[in-house]
Amino acid sequence: MRITADTDKCIGAGQCLFTEPDLFDQSEADGRVVVLNAEPVGELLAQKAREAVYLCPSRALSLAE
C-alpha cells in the first residue's frame, strides 16, 4: 500500500493527523498534509490509512494497493 497526498486539494482540516499521527502531519507553513510514512506496514496502520482517506473532506488523500 502507498499513500499519496495531493497538497493542491488539501484544505488543512487535519482529519488525517487526528486519525493517525504516525502517518500524517501538517505543514507549519500552510497547514497542508505531510505524509510521514507513505508505505505503512502492518494491518493496523493500513486500516488507519484507509480511515484517513475516507475522512479527508477535500479528498486529497488516496491509496494504491
Results as ranks from 00 to 15, higher is better:
D8Q: 14
C10A: 08
C10V: 05
A13V: 10
L17A: 11
F18G: 13
E20D: 15
E20H: 09
E20T: 06
E20G: 08
P21G: 11
P21I: 12
D22R: 14
D22Y: 11
L23W: 01
D25T: 09
Q26L: 15
S27K: 11
S27L: 08
S27T: 08
E28Q: 14
A29W: 08
A29H: 10
A29D: 14
D30E: 07
D30A: 08
G31L: 09
G31W: 03
R32N: 12
V33K: 05
V34A: 08
V35Y: 06
V35D: 03
L36M: 08
L36D: 03
N37I: 11
N37M: 14
N37T: 14
A38Y: 04
A38R: 12
A38G: 10
P40E: 01
V41R: 13
V41L: 14
V41G: 12
V41S: 14
E43T: 10
L44I: 12
L44V: 13
L44N: 10
L45F: 04
Q47H: 12
A49M: 02
R50N: 03
A52Q: 00
A52S: 05
A52V: 02
A52C: 05
A52F: 05
A52N: 00
V53W: 03
Y54I: 10
L55D: 05
L55P: 01
L55H: 06
C56Q: 00
C56R: 01
P57C: 07
P57N: 05
P57F: 04
S58G: 07
S58C: 04
S58W: 02
S58A: 14
S58Y: 08
R59S: 13
A60M: 04
A60C: 11
L61M: 07
